[in-house]
């Protein structure tokens, strides 16, 4: 369970990105966060694993993120897999090496130093690759893959952590519509099959409608909508966006 209590984020430059957020996300939920760019979606996601200077209280399965020491933060992060808009793969390294990065916090320091990965970690990495269906590319350079394949490697890296929570920050924003749907389906399936709590930032409303269960709308760093995605109507979106919906807000609209 993730619980935000009066959580705020002010960046060193003075930019207030999140103000007084109260939220509870139960285990196994599939949550989609929408909002304009700059509304605080990324910040909300990153306050879960302590990547941003957050005040108030954020607890992850009972562990407090705010004011946690370095090693406490590391322990929290071990259970949280993250997926990025730009994939954040090491292009020169093999897919396998990238997926194994998810295991770094679990292996002894000397083993990672010498690159002597235990067999069970390799097995976990291969299983993760199988789950996203690109195990045959395991020994290919990451930079040689297409965008969609790279993002699946990103998902596999998160899965290799054997996480309880997955945070996905605009996972399809750099992908074409067809691949976007594939990646979203992968995430949905993983959530259902493994029961991993999944929180996704999305820009496109139709993708949010098609795959989300619970929808959280952010505007100017505050939660302005929180409810079942089936109940949401165009007025709610107008409230979240502060304007009418345009084709740019839809994946299909943007594609045409």
């Amino acid at each position: 369970m993730i619980r935000f209590t009066n959580a705020s984020v002010v960046y060193p430059g003075g930019l207030k990105a999140l103000s007084g957020v109260d939220l509870t996300i139960e285990d196994g939920e599939f949550v989609v966060i929408v909002g304009l760019s700059g509304a605080g979606k990324s910040t909300l996601l990153r306050s879960v694993n302590g990547l941003v200077p957050v005040t108030g209280s954020v607890t992850v399965n009972g562990a407090e993120v705010v004011g946690a020491s370095k090693s406490e933060i590391r322990a929290i992060r071990t259970d949280i897999g993250m997926i990025f808009q730009t994939f954040n793969l090491v292009g020169r390294a093999t897919v396998m090496a990238n997926v194994l990065m998810g295991r770094l916090s679990m292996v002894p320091r000397w083993r990672s130093m010498l690159g002597l990965w235990p067999a069970e970690d390799r097995e976990l990495a291969l299983q993760a690759l199988e789950r996203v269906g690109i195990v045959e590319k395991a020994y290919v350079r990451a930079s040689d893959l297409s965008g969609g394949q790279q993002q699946r490697v990103g998902i596999a890296r998160a899965l290799a952590q054997d996480p309880k929570i997955i945070l996905a920050d605009e996972p399809v924003a750099s992908l074409d519509p067809v691949t976007s749907h594939m990646v979203m389906r992968d995430l949905q399936r993983i959530n259902r099959e493994l029961g991993i709590t999944t929180i996704i930032n999305l820009h496109f409303l139709d993708l949010a409608r098609a795959y989300g269960k619970r929808l959280i709308g952010l505007r100017d760093g505050q939660v302005v909508y929180d409810g079942d995605i089936a109940d949401v109507n165009d007025d709610d979106f107008r409230e979240i966006y502060g304007r009418a919906i345009t084709p740019d807000d839809l994946l299909e609209g943007a594609a045409t």
């Binding site: 322990a75 770094l104 890296r157």
Partner: peptide, 24 residues
Amino acid sequence: GPLEAARTSGARYTQVIQYGAFPQ
């Protein structure tokens, strides 16, 4: 990016450097 990815998975500093930065 890869540095952030390694950091968010809970890796230690030396691991972040070795796996996120050094191959590049």
